[in-house]
C-alpha cells in the first residue's frame, strides 16, 4: 500500500465493538462507533481540503448510500456510491459499489462492485474487528478511484460524469 493511504488510515480511529447486524444490541454500539469514525474521517478530509465522498446509512445502518468524486485536470467526476453491511460484518468487509460505472471498466464485478487489490482482504482480516466503514473507503475505494478514473477518462467512457 502507498504511504499516503497508510497515513490516512492511521488517522481513522479503530472500532471497539466486535458485533455485526445479526446481533441487534451489539450492532447499536458498533453503529455508533462506525458513525463516529466516518465523521472523524470526513472531518479530516475537509480539514485537508481533500473531501472526496459523502455517505449516509439507512435507519438500521445496513444500507449506505452517497456519492464519491475525483478531480482530474480540474474536472470533477462524481458517482453514486452504495454498499450493504454483510451478515458476517465486521469479519468481512462490505463490498463497495459504483453502480453507474458497471460495464465501463474490467476492474469491477457485475453490478458495479469494485475489484479490490490483493492488499485489501489480508489487511482487513488482520485488523478485524477494528476496521470499519471508514477504513474500507480509505483503503478500498480511494486507491481504486485514483487508479481507475484516469484510465476511464483517457478511454473517454466517463465524460458524462464530469461536473
Amino acid at each position: 500500500m502507498d504511504e499516503g493511504t497508510k497515513s490516512v488510515l492511521q488517522k481513522i480511529p479503530l472500532l471497539r465493538t466486535n458485533a455485526g447486524p445479526r446481533d441487534a444490541e451489539g450492532w447499536n454500539r458498533r453503529l455508533k462507533e462506525e458513525l463516529l469514525a466516518v465523521i472523524k474521517y470526513v472531518s479530516n478530509n475537509k480539514e485537508q481540503d481533500r473531501d472526496w465522498f459523502f455517505i449516509q446509512p439507512d435507519e438500521k445502518g445496513i444500507k449506505w448510500s452517497g456519492k464519491c468524486w475525483y478531480y482530474l485536470d480540474q474536472v470533477r467526476y462524481e458517482f453514486e456510491l452504495e454498499f450493504e453491511i454483510p451478515a458476517t460484518y465486521p469479519t468481512t468487509a462490505p463490498e463497495l459499489k459504483l453502480p453507474e460505472l458497471d460495464g465501463k471498466t474490467a476492474k469491477m464485478y457485475r453490478g458495479g462492485k469494485i475489484c479490490q487489490t490483493v492488499h485489501f482482504q489480508p489487511l482487513w482480516a488482520r485488523n478485524a474487528p477494528h476496521f470499519g466503514i471508514a477504513h474500507a473507503l480509505a483503503m478500498g475505494l480511494g486507491p481504486w478511484l485514483a487508479a481507475e478514473i484516469p484510465d476511464m477518462v483517457q478511454r473517454g467512457v466517463i465524460s458524462s460524469f464530469a461536473k
Binding site: 479503530l14 471497539r16 489480508p122 482480516a125 488482520r126 485488523n127 477494528h130
Partner: peptide, 15 residues
C-alpha cells in the same frame, strides 16, 4: 493467504 489477525491494539487508537 495472509498473516493472522493482530492480537491487540493500543487503546489510544480506538474510537
Amino acid at each position: 493467504e495472509f498473516e493472522p489477525a493482530k492480537s491487540s491494539v493500543n487503546n489510544d487508537e480506538l474510537v
